[in-house]
Amino acid sequence: MTVFVQNLINGIISGSYYAVLGVGLTVTWGVLKMINIAHGDFYMIGAFMFYTFSILMGFPVVPSIIIGIAAVFILGMVMEKFVLAPSLGRGKFGDTPFILTLAIGILLQNIAQLTWGEKNVGVPYFNDAIFQFMGLTMAGQRLIVAAVAMVTLIVVMMVIKKTRFGWAISATAQDTFSATLMGINTKQIYMVTFGIAAGLCAIAGCLLAPIYGINPWMGGSIQLKSFVVCIVGGLGSVEGSIVAGLALGIIESYVTQFLGSGWQNVIAYALVIVMFWFRPAGIFGKME
């Protein structure tokens, strides 16, 4: 029973980050109508930014994280403005922006390799405490990380549902033409949305860095996981991504327990294929 609960908690913790990453990707799809294959690389850059500010420059943890996230947010907006914006809407489903994100991904990876070297680096845990509670062991680090993810998800939901800006995002996603007529600067919304998606990646990157370490290729598997999350949740559905992210984390946690970590990812990807077979639009997606 304890093992069961322990796995559940571990699953929820990693799942909350899949959710954060998936939400970014799904919002990008909803608003810009393109899939971003450089998503994982923004995650990687976020982690490196945190490393730079906290280890190399000696800033305290919280300011480093905030600066790191802000830097990636701006990087995302710059990339959107100068690389993606001129190509949006080209190709049948936005093939051109898709190819461009591919190039952005290579670019970011190479910049990371040149700047920080082709090696693993690490940052220390924020908190070394270990909590024992009814036979469950919880590292303080993981609890902090989970709390931040939950708060992030709640804030994102609130912003989208309740604020003027959130309405503008929904309006642009549903009908760009009409949104323009309402006085919404849709190009700006595109830019900010992409920036926010990148910023969400950076949040995940910064907070997971102490646990998983940092290297220029760390974005690869996270990239595919985020895809899995937003497909299973239904492309464009924020709620779907959150549910799918948590579910994926929990499933992975049990699979690792029973089959070993080598097969954990196989199951996640196989899940997508099965999903496509039975419900191509995702759990929360609308059937076409």
Binding site: F93, Y269, W277
Partner: peptide
């Protein structure tokens, strides 16, 4: 064959490729 929209095909095939890679590793 079951998928029509390009993003779904992209993600499905990427996952298939990754599954194959992991199988060959494991």
């Amino acid at each position: 064959l079951r998928l029509k929209a390009a993003p779904y095909i992209i993600i499905a095939t990427m996952c298939l490729a990754e599954i194959v890679r992991l199988i060959f590793i494991n």
